[in-house]
Design a protein around this nucleic acid. Sequence first.
DNA 1: GATGAATGAGCATTCATTCAT
DNA 2: TATGAATGAATGCTCATTCAT
Lengths: 208, 208, 208, 208
Amino acid sequence: MKEVSKRETILDAALSVVAAKGYISTKVEDIARKAGVAKGTVYLYFKDKSDIYIGLVDSILSKGLELVREIDSRPLSQREKLSEVFAAWVRGMHEQPGMVPLVSMESINLAAREVDRFKQSIKPRIRELIEAIAAIVRPGIEAGEFRRVDPYMAALMFVHSFPMNIMVVRHKLPVQDPVGTTLDMFFHGILPGTEPKPNHNGNHRKPL
Amino acid sequence: MKEVSKRETILDAALSVVAAKGYISTKVEDIARKAGVAKGTVYLYFKDKSDIYIGLVDSILSKGLELVREIDSRPLSQREKLSEVFAAWVRGMHEQPGMVPLVSMESINLAAREVDRFKQSIKPRIRELIEAIAAIVRPGIEAGEFRRVDPYMAALMFVHSFPMNIMVVRHKLPVQDPVGTTLDMFFHGILPGTEPKPNHNGNHRKPL
Amino acid sequence: MKEVSKRETILDAALSVVAAKGYISTKVEDIARKAGVAKGTVYLYFKDKSDIYIGLVDSILSKGLELVREIDSRPLSQREKLSEVFAAWVRGMHEQPGMVPLVSMESINLAAREVDRFKQSIKPRIRELIEAIAAIVRPGIEAGEFRRVDPYMAALMFVHSFPMNIMVVRHKLPVQDPVGTTLDMFFHGILPGTEPKPNHNGNHRKPL
Amino acid sequence: MKEVSKRETILDAALSVVAAKGYISTKVEDIARKAGVAKGTVYLYFKDKSDIYIGLVDSILSKGLELVREIDSRPLSQREKLSEVFAAWVRGMHEQPGMVPLVSMESINLAAREVDRFKQSIKPRIRELIEAIAAIVRPGIEAGEFRRVDPYMAALMFVHSFPMNIMVVRHKLPVQDPVGTTLDMFFHGILPGTEPKPNHNGNHRKPL
DNA sequence: GATGAATGAGCATTCATTCAT
DNA sequence: TATGAATGAATGCTCATTCAT
């Protein structure tokens, strides 16, 4: 229905291939084949291989950011917004498991000459994403919904909780409701003294 | 005291080179040169290039684990132990900045055939490390020092807070006392209701 | 006429280089240079170095086999056919001296893991060639033209006489008409009792 | 019982290893290990790797030559001597299968710089061996026991019949009494007209 | 725009040889 | 004599990138 540009077709192919084999093991030809185009065609839309990778991460981050902004505009409490963002990300991860290894900014092992360009391109997008989370936290603090933590740090912690959550799912660790558990710890910490609302998992308890 | 095995010499060299250039960009010859040995010598101690990488991560994790166990044996509260582990890791990171990109389990971009071997070797070590943290959390819960969270998840969150903290330092984000802030959020979450002890940063507030 | 496939071009280059330097000493780059292509191009047509070698031997054996079959179809006595095959092989050897070291099945010194592949590919071709010779011997026996020897053994002896003949030429041994001499011994043996027809070389004599 | 020199110990080890894996695949360390000495020790007795190979072939050829001379001194007909030499070689081959790939002078695929030295050393030994065979043929011709063939060519054919015979055994070709058959063809050729003595195989027939 | 055959720089790995002990 | 840890030259192979069609 939607006219998908060839660039996007290639990017989609790249996502699935890179997800399956990792960036290093992925050959440009693999991506081309998966996208149903010739190798040369890829170079009509991307400067070089790392440009594909940058495009890939950029695309994922853009979608993540879009999601955050959409949810931020809903009439929810800030806490509910964060919960919803997290849940949406996890859902997205299940639909596109390929994005998992891509979300960590440190996860790159590019050739030396590519690293700088990558950082130039991606760092601002990550910061943008974190800012968008911080923009949810900040009014929450103002409204007394959250403690007076550093919003940027809170956003960082939130973002970093995501790959952790993935790890649980990936390695099939025996944790019930990992999303709920992660958010629970994110919101209440591990010290007693907050009063998490009871939930069906029951893996919480009244503080002393 | 100075009696260092050649294997360790090579591993040290590998750490500094890989830290500086990334695994992919690091040539075995770079490592050899840095270690002051010939290329062939490296292959007397390591099967192949990825074996060096495995050795590297393994060594770092071992040191981290050792540290955890040592601190766990001190006469401290469980919370103090966690704080101390975190601070020690951060100190270590400043001494060995190379370890930073290596601590994330997802940070690998090895060639396809190497991935399995890597996971075989490293996964158990990571799990061991997380278990050691969980072994601090668990008695804390029993003693009522912590909420009744899933100890394994708490350990995961703790471990994942580390790279986040690194990011702050790395990118020189304007956060005062990132270690304290990170631990604060880890312990108290971002919701009001716990009563963190006032500190000079003032980033705490009365719960509602 | 001149339309030669690139694969054949490479094979021709490989023949002359391998003939001159031996398989081991031949670098893939040598072959590429000789063929007027880049190193990578060679790998578009051959899986690896030993695949070139297999292709080489296969090609030579195919040509030898083709020759045998063509001659077998001519209206000659079986003995004349064998003589003609031998002479044609020797002529071919003078045009393509490179094939010499390749005709012996034992002449291989490949790396261990390559040996199996080589044998898989080449053994059947050699057997085919020997069978084609045996197919000339067999009707000769039926017709009483040859003694009732084992056709397969006779074919083997015939084939093995070829490298012997080459050796004579190669090392410039002082033998007149080595081809005639070789065939003479192949047909009559060294015992007296057969009556070889006098020929212009005169290097034969009446048996007692 | 017999005081075996270390040089011979190494040579024996080399034979079995080279026989099993081929010259190229054989590492000096393999030979050393098999001989029960350290790698460096090998270099006390051999200049380099190809020197071992030369020593190996030289040793085999020497034994073969010794055998020929011993048999030549026995009170037998020249024909019986040749038969006996052939049979003895085949017996030796069964005891030391490793020698098989080594007997053909063309079977070498040494590195370029080694080829010349090899030929310098080995060619004279091969020629010596062939001369020793020719020295059996020559008086046979004088005595009318053999046709007036070129003795050197006959010797060559004789020597080249050996690897052929090996091939039959190696590849388990369905030939009864390969030694007898080979000698039969060597002595009588394949044409009718000689009168081989009837034997139990019955693979003889009346000449026309 | 699209193709895919051709390119060649780049690198891990091997192993014969040396030499300090 | 004997050792075996250390060396480093040598080379097969990959794959991102180009460009003639």
